[in-house]
C-alpha cells in the first residue's frame, strides 16, 4: 500500500539492469547529446533504432516506457504546435491569422521526435536503475568536483535520505489529513483562498514532524559514528566488469557515428 517508487524502477534482471549505473548515466547523457547532434531523418531513424534495441534489452514492457511520456505530453504538444504555427517559410495552409509552412511542419516533427526520444531514453535509465544506484553513480562521477569544494558526498547522502523519507512523509500526510478531517476539517470545498487556508492544519503538523524526524535521524547517524565523507569506506562500492567496458565502447562508437553524421551533414 502506498509505497512510492520514485523514478518508477521496474524490477528485472535484464542486461541493462545489471550494467553499472555509471555506464547508464553517461550513456543517457550521450544519447541526449546525440539527439541534438543529428539533424537528419537518417540520424533520427538511427536514434530510433537504438532506442528500440534498448527497450528490447531492458525487458521493460513498452507501456511502462510510454507511460513516462504522460507528464511531458503537454509540453511536447505545446512545442510542436508553437513550431508548427510560428515558423516562417513556404506556406502550405493558411487559416485565420496562422500560416502553416513546410519548414514549420518539418521543425515541429523534429522537435517532437527529439523530445519523445529524450524522455523515453532517460526513462529507460530510471526504469532499470534503482534510485540508490543512481545516487551512487552520481556521487562517484561527480567526485572530482569536491576538489572545487562542492560537497558531493553530502549532496548524495541528502538525496538518498530524501528517497528514504518521501514514502514516510506521504503516509504521514495522509494520517494528519484524516485526523483533521475527524475534527471536521474540510479540504475539498471553497474558493482558492479558503482552500489554501484549510491547508494550514495539515502543513504545520507536517513540518513539525519533519523537523522532529530530521533531528532524530541526525542523532541516530551521529550515534553510529557518521562524520561526513572523509575516512569512510563503502559497503557496495561501484565496480566495473567486462560488460561495462564493452557498453562504454558501444556508447563511444555511437557518439562517433553521430559526429560523423553531423560533419558530413547527413
Amino acid at each position: 500500500m502506498g509505497e512510492i517508487t520514485l523514478g518508477q524502477y521496474y524490477p528485472s534482471n535484464s542486461i541493462l539492469h545489471r550494467l553499472d549505473p555509471r555506464v547508464k548515466f553517461i550513456g543517457t547523457i550521450l544519447y541526449i547529446v546525440s539527439l541534438f547532434l543529428v539533424n537528419s531523418w537518417i540520424g533520427y531513424a538511427m536514434a530510433g533504432c537504438v532506442l528500440a534495441v534498448l527497450i528490447g534489452l531492458s525487458r521493460v514492457p513498452l507501456r511502462f516506457i510510454l507511460r513516462s511520456m504522460k507528464p511531458v505530453l503537454f509540453i511536447l504538444l505545446f512545442t510542436m504546435i508553437f513550431n508548427l504555427l510560428l515558423t516562417p517559410g513556404d506556406v502550405l495552409v493558411r487559416f485565420w491569422i496562422f500560416r502553416i509552412t513546410r519548414e514549420g511542419v518539418s521543425l515541429a516533427v523534429r522537435m517532437g521526435i527529439r523530445l519523445a526520444f529524450l524522455v523515453m531514453g532517460s526513462s529507460i535509465m530510471t526504469l532499470t536503475t534503482t534510485p540508490n544506484e543512481l545516487t551512487d553513480a552520481m556521487e562517484n562521477l561527480f567526485a572530482p568536483l569536491s576538489f572545487f569544494h562542492v560537497p558531493v558526498h553530502e549532496i548524495a547522502m541528502m538525496m538518498s535520505i530524501a528517497l528514504r523519507f518521501i514514502p514516510i512523509l506521504v503516509e504521514e500526510t495522509d494520517k494528519i489529513k484524516k485526523a483533521q478531517m475527524a475534527r471536521g476539517a474540510d479540504f475539498e470545498s471553497g474558493g482558492l483562498v479558503r482552500r489554501v487556508r484549510s491547508m494550514i492544519p495539515l502543513l504545520v503538523p507536517l513540518f513539525v514532524s519533519a523537523f522532529r524526524r530530521a533531528n532524530d535521524l541526525a542523532m541516530a547517524m551521529e550515534a553510529r559514528c557518521y562524520h561526513g565523507g572523509s575516512g569512510r569506506t563503502q559497503m557496495k562500492p561501484l565496480k566495473y566488469s567486462k560488460r561495462d567496458f564493452i557498453a562504454y565502447a558501444i556508447e563511444l562508437a555511437y557518439l562517433a557515428v553521430c559526429i560523423i553524421f553531423k560533419v558530413r551533414g547527413l
Binding site: 534503482t130 534510485p131 538518498s160 528517497l163 541516530a220 547517524m221 553510529r224 559497503m235
Partner: peptide, 17 residues
Amino acid sequence: NQIIGTVVDEDVGFGPE
C-alpha cells in the same frame, strides 16, 4: 527515524562504513 539505508543490509553497513 533511525534507519538510514533504503535497503536493510545497506543500513546495517552504515556504521562500519
